[in-house]
Design a protein around this nucleic acid. Structure first.
Lengths: 137, 137
DNA sequence: ATCGATGCAAAATTTTTGCACCATG
DNA sequence: CATGGTGCAAAAATTTTGCATCGAT
């Protein structure tokens, strides 16, 4: 496996973009963290201007480095599958925690089959499951 | 089947809420429409004050009448499963159209099993599949 | 040294709230 | 006719943009 930071450098390099403090900081705040809201991210990167955090996230999305997930009403941000294996989350409606699901080949296969049946080329997908976690029921 | 409008009345009734012009208007704008953004909805209900549209959607969500889905970056709104059978969408990255998937029991069962395995009580879920529709590839 | 990237300030957009008035039950 | 619901206006929160300056290659 490639070191995540190295992979970030490579991705930026190959798009002729520079490896800057702001980009390093935002990336570090995402790495190994639970999905977080823009607000949390802005706070985690408080040495960086919020406008730059927005610009960086927007760039990271275009480069496929970051994904937005819908968690309840608001979106949250996390590193995309190339940095952190493909997965989905359970979200507890009581305590708000997100539980990461192991990758499930049956689920993935079924989705492919469903997309195929519509003559649709699936490029990605997101799943959010809401309910009650083991602590809350 | 119960008429959707009747079901709305009943839901409001049983919560001791009134059946008003604003609520009728927002409901009508959702009924039989593709998932739409808040902006589109506000436009479709332009006879109603935007603040009231927000308040109505917020109420409808609490009552389980409406759901938010993530379509690309922004959320969209549609009637929930009690008004319109449970389903998911494919979203085309080129033309932006949303294709409704037929309900799929294998998928639903797999999700239940995955939630069970985490000792999680699933109360609902949302799925977004992105890719290329048959017209665009 | 060059050109892209950033900070700062301002603007635009989206969402929420307070309050007086209106309409529903 | 009592109360919950609405419109309007203002505020708060979120996101985007312009521009002068800074810093990575």
């Amino acid at each position: 496996v490639v070191e995540p930071v190295q992979q970030l450098k490579n991705t930026l390099r190959s798009n002729e973009l520079s490896y800057t403090l702001a980009r390093r900081t935002v990336f570090a705040a995402l790495l190994g963290s639970e999905p977080q809201s823009m607000n949390e991210l802005i706070w985690a990167c408080r040495q960086i201007d919020p406008a730059t955090v927005y610009r960086t996230i927007s760039l990271f999305e275009r480069l496929g480095i970051v994904e937005r997930l819908q968690i309840g009403w608001k979106y949250k941000l996390e590193l995309s599958d190339s940095f952190d294996n493909h997965h989905h989350h359970l979200t507890c409606r009581i305590c708000g925690s997100t539980i990461r699901l192991p990758e499930d080949q049956l689920l993935e296969n079924r989705l492919s089959a469903m997309a195929d049946a519509q003559n649709f080329i699936m490029q990605g997908h997101q799943l959010e499951v809401q309910g009650l976690c083991s602590n809350c029921h």
